[in-house]
Amino acid sequence: MAAPRLTVPVLKAANLALLVLYPVAWAAPLVRAGFLPLFGLDEISVLSGLQALWDSDIFLALIVTVFALFAPWLKTLGLALIQFGLLDRRALPAVNILGKLAMADIFLIAVYITLAKGIGVGRIETAWGLYLFTGCILASLLISLAESRDKTRHS
């Protein structure tokens, strides 16, 4: 039995939904962190983390901004332009490269959480925004894979 194929309207709608869900995920809490178990936990989002980075390390903030904000959103926008015939399908490999850059920030967040938990000085808990952000990146990856495999629309 073959795997069910997603229809073109479903792929388009899912991709357009990501254009709205990404900004929500950027503002949503990724983790709750605190110095000691006795104190309350501060919520950290992509945007609040970037804001702190811009205050302390501009070069790193620029890199993270590209990976966390621009790469996934531009990839999703580029894919939407391809889906609606406003950008040539030959641009799909370049659009997919942006998606690979977007996956790098999920890896970095996972490394930071692992390191913070390993140090044991404070307390860190994952929050719903981390799952939303990861889900957006993975959904975007799956949409672009489905779009790349659809050979019938290459003409």
Rank of each mutant, 00 (worst) to 15 (best):
F133L: 06
G49A: 05
L50K: 03
I113F: 15
K117Y: 07
L142T: 13
R123C: 05
K151E: 15
N96S: 01
P23H: 04
L21T: 05
L16A: 09
A116G: 11
L21K: 05
L77Y: 07
P93I: 08
V64Y: 12
K117H: 07
K75D: 10
A28D: 00
F70G: 09
F35G: 10
I63M: 12
L6E: 13
A80H: 08
W128L: 05
T134L: 14
R149C: 08
S155T: 06
I44N: 02
L115A: 11
H154N: 12
R90N: 10
Y22P: 09
T152F: 02
L141N: 11
G85P: 09
L74E: 08
I143S: 11
A116Q: 13
A61K: 08
S148C: 03
L47H: 00
L138F: 15
V10H: 04
V95K: 03
L87T: 02
K151R: 14
L53N: 01
W54N: 00
A71V: 11
G34R: 14
D150F: 09
K151N: 09
L18T: 07
V66F: 15
G120D: 14
R149K: 12
R90H: 09
A3K: 14
L74F: 15
L145E: 14
L130F: 15
L30I: 05
R89K: 01
A52M: 08
L41Y: 05
L62P: 03
V10P: 00
G118Y: 07
G49S: 13
A17V: 07
A127D: 12
L115R: 12
L101F: 15
S144P: 14
V8K: 03
F133V: 01
G129Y: 00
A28K: 00
L30W: 02
W73F: 14
D42P: 13
G85L: 01
I106H: 04
L87I: 04
L115G: 08
I97S: 00
D105K: 01
L60C: 03
L115V: 14
K151M: 08
D55K: 02
M103G: 08
I124A: 08
I137E: 07
